[in-house]
Structure formats: structure tokens, C-alpha cells
Amino acid sequence: MHSNKIIELKDISKSFFVASKEPGLKGTLKHFFKRKYNEIKVVKNINIEIKKGEIVGFLGANGAGKTTILKILCGLLYPTNGFISIAGYRPYERKAEFLNKISLIMGQKQQLIWDLPPIDSFYLNAAIYGIEKSEAKNRIKFLSEMLEINKELYLPVRKLSLGQRMKAELLAALIHNPNILFLDEPTLGLDINAQANLRKFLQLYNKETGSTILLTSHYMKDITYLCRRVICIHEGVVTYDGNLEKLLTKLSPRKELSIICKSKKDIESLKNLGLDIKNVESNEITLLIKKEDIKKTLKNILNKYELEDLQISEPPVDEIIGKLLTNK
């Protein structure tokens, strides 16, 4: 059966050679005469397969190798070894047919011409991708409606706010209707509203066009909102690849149960049930309970005690992922 996987990485590795320098005057002089080169393996034997239409998030601390993988995927870096295929192409050959299918958006870099209105950059890009003017016009109209951006397209880029600029960047990157989108920290520096709008747009775009989206982000919200699948990278190695929900269950198999009791006596008694306690505060107690045990425990407690209030919650995602990034 011809599978619908669009991206395939087998055993991909990437090394850089970096000159190192000791601090201070002595180090400088040493560096002058003899440079030491260190091999740094940024990506180690990575295997990834991605299906058409998926939204996949890359998670990892700074310097984990996310951006390097993304650059290998869009052909900007060639892998030191391994096999890579995207829609049947080798990205590092940068064939025009391949480039027509992809787009790259980087949160901290911009391709729009700074002194001119975004619309000029759009038409330039359209010409580069060989799109007729009338078609480009339709495309701009379609995307600007979706992005809710309009009169800003006629102001010089330098006069736009960061959020507006990002929208315009997206429009410039999507003008050629790419099938595969690479986003590197797209929400960097945006305020909460702008972040939410961007996420909504990406989700809608994925739904409407069936395009594949790969993104890296520091904001957990981006990932949890958009991606059902995540790939965790730590020091160049894939430490997890799969469903986000499952990852969360795996990392934190317990829920938090907060109970407010009428009497302090009940609290003392709850303490001695042999359950894990996260926190006790006067007449409030927070317990950690395995997800499969929650019904049974709850029943028990409700039968035995007179409660004022009760709340069941998931531990915050940021906390879990943060743990993942630092510990493992």
C-alpha cells in the first residue's frame, strides 16, 4: 500500500565544527595562533515519519536541536548522514519543485521588505513562485480575510505592530499555497491575543487546505492547542514521539483532588488515609490520585466526610513539560 507519509527521516545526524576560545586576553592570543575545533553533534540518529495533514510540534529546551532539525527538513542544512525524504524530494538539493511545496516562517527573522508596505513583498514573492498577478490577488484576498488583516497591507512594514507584522509574514509565506509549513517559534514576542489569533489561523488553515504543519515553540499553549502529536528533543535525541495526551498521562498519571472540609478533624483523618498528599492548608487538603482510582476514592470520601467544596484538576501542562525538558 502506498502510504500517505509525506516526511520521512531515517537515522539523520548533524554535526557542527566550532572554534572554541578561552576568555580573556590570554585566550585571545592563544586563539590567534592556534584555533581548536570541536565537533558538536547537534542531532543524533533521528527517525521520524509524518503523515500528510498532520500538525506536529517539536518540544525541547534551548539548544536541544529543534531549529537544526527544522532547517534540515526545509533543506537549509544538509545532514551529516542519514536518509531524508520530503514529498519524494531530498530537501538539501533544493529543487524548485520541492521549494514550491514548502514554506518557512521564523518568529525572530523576517523576509518582508522593511521600508515598504507588505503588499509589495507579496507581489515579489508571487513573481518568484511563478504565480500570475490575478491569481496572486485572489490568494492575498483569501488569506487576508482569514488573517483579518487589511489596511495594514498598505503601510510600510516598519510602522506595523509585531502582531500585524507576523500576520503579514504569514501571508508572504503562504502566497504560493505550500503543502508543508515549517514554523520556528512563530509566536515569539507576540502578546496573548495575537498568539491566540495565530493559533486559530494555523488550525483553520490546516483544516481548509490539508497542509502539513511542523512547528517549534516555547509557548506550551501553541503546542497543546494545535498539535495532537508531539516530538520531544533533548540534546539531539528524540525522547518521545507520539500523542500529546498520552505523553501527559505518562508523565503525570495522577489528578489533583482538592477538598475543603468543615472541620479540622476531617482533615487529620484524610491525612491518614494513606494517599499521597500534595498540600495541606488549614482546612483544605490537596491529594494526588491515580486516574484509574479516582472514582473509587471519590466515592469513599464522599460517603465518609462532610465536605464544603471539592475540585478535581489536571496538573498544569507547563509544569509537566517543564519537568520533561529539565529532567530527561
Partner: peptide, 8 residues
């Protein structure tokens, strides 16, 4: 000076 040596 260290900075400039970088640009020798």
C-alpha cells in the same frame, strides 16, 4: 582589544 583580535 580581544574583540578586535577576533577581526584580525
Amino acid at each position: 582589544y580581544s574583540n578586535m583580535m577576533e577581526y584580525r
